[in-house]
Amino acid sequence: MISYLIKILKVKKGAYMKKCEGIYSLIGKVNHKSAIYGFELLKEENIHPRQMPLIIHLKKCEGCTQKELAEKMQVKPSTLNVMIGRMEKNGYIEKKQDEKDSRKSRIYFTEKGRSICEDGHKKFVMIQEKLQEYFTKEEQEELKRLLNKFCDCLDEQTEILKKERKEKSDA
């Protein structure tokens, strides 16, 4: 499968490339289908797939501040605030005032949230296992390599854009 994808990616002007309009479009399609799959898996828990990164990061640093969590997740504090509000409303997380600094609040799972976290982790493992059934070990490694290369490319291009924007505003 991955060798087939590599052949497709090497084609400059094939019919398939016109159909999916390139790598970026294909990644977007995968992301969209992944979100649909996530919606179906998480429907019962009333969790949006985009909230899973919050659950995963909070599991790693329960009791952190909202600012710390936003930095770890690489999202705007306002975006995180909406997520936290919804999850708080659903009874999955709670904010508690910091004992040492009353200006800060820390975020914790409720028992219900801890249970959702465990269920989410099990479903994530299940997804990984199901997806791995479709690829050989070699294909999995090649796909990981290519996706990491894609991420590196996006990071590099983002930094270039930030630098150019800064240079324009300084001029």
Score class of each variant (00 low, 15 high):
Glu62Arg: 08
Asp119Pro: 01
Arg145Asn: 04
Gly28Leu: 11
Glu139Cys: 07
Phe135Val: 05
Ile93Cys: 06
Phe39Gln: 06
Ala15Gly: 05
Asn46Asp: 00
Leu154Glu: 15
Gly28Ile: 10
Lys72Asp: 00
Leu161Ile: 09
Ser25Gln: 14
Asn148Met: 14
Leu131Arg: 03
Pro53Glu: 00
Val11Ser: 15
Met52Cys: 05
Leu5Thr: 03
Lys162Val: 14
Val30Pro: 02
Leu147Asn: 12
Gly14Asp: 15
Lys10Leu: 14
Lys76Ala: 08
Lys137Leu: 12
Leu69Ile: 00
Asn81Pro: 00
Asp119Glu: 13
Glu45Trp: 14
Thr136Ala: 06
Ser25Ala: 14
Lys149Ile: 12
Gly28Gln: 11
Glu138Thr: 02
Met1Lys: 02
Val75Pro: 02
Lys33Met: 09
Lys18Glu: 15
Glu71Leu: 08
Ala15Cys: 07
Met83Phe: 12
Gln132Tyr: 04
Ile84Ser: 01
Ile36Cys: 07
Gln74Asn: 13
Val82His: 13
Gln128Ser: 07
Arg145Ile: 01
Lys19Arg: 08
Ala15Pro: 00
Glu138Trp: 00
Gly91Leu: 08
Lys168Met: 14
Glu167Cys: 04
Glu138Val: 02
Cys153Ala: 11
Met83Pro: 01
Thr136Lys: 03
Lys149Thr: 13
Cys151His: 10
Lys7Ala: 09
Tyr4Cys: 10
Lys59Val: 03
Thr110Asp: 02
Arg106Ser: 05
Ile55Arg: 09
Lys12Ile: 15
Lys67Ile: 06
Ile56Pro: 12
His32Ala: 12
Cys151Trp: 11
Lys149Leu: 14
Tyr4Lys: 14
His48Glu: 13
Leu9Ile: 11
Glu118Phe: 03
Lys10His: 13
Lys72Met: 08
Asn90Cys: 00
Lys112Met: 01
Leu131Ser: 06
Glu164Pro: 01
Gln140Arg: 05
Lys7Ile: 05
Lys162His: 12
Ile55Asn: 07
Glu99Thr: 00
Lys123Asp: 07
Asp152Gln: 14
Gly113Glu: 00
Ile84Asn: 01
Glu138Asp: 15
Lys100Gln: 08
Arg50Pro: 00
Glu141Cys: 03
Glu138Phe: 04
Gly113Pro: 03
Thr79Gly: 09
Gly38Gln: 05
Arg103Trp: 04
Glu94Lys: 15
Lys100Ala: 04
Lys72Thr: 03
Phe124Gln: 09
Tyr134His: 10
Arg165Tyr: 06
Glu94Thr: 11
Glu118Asn: 07
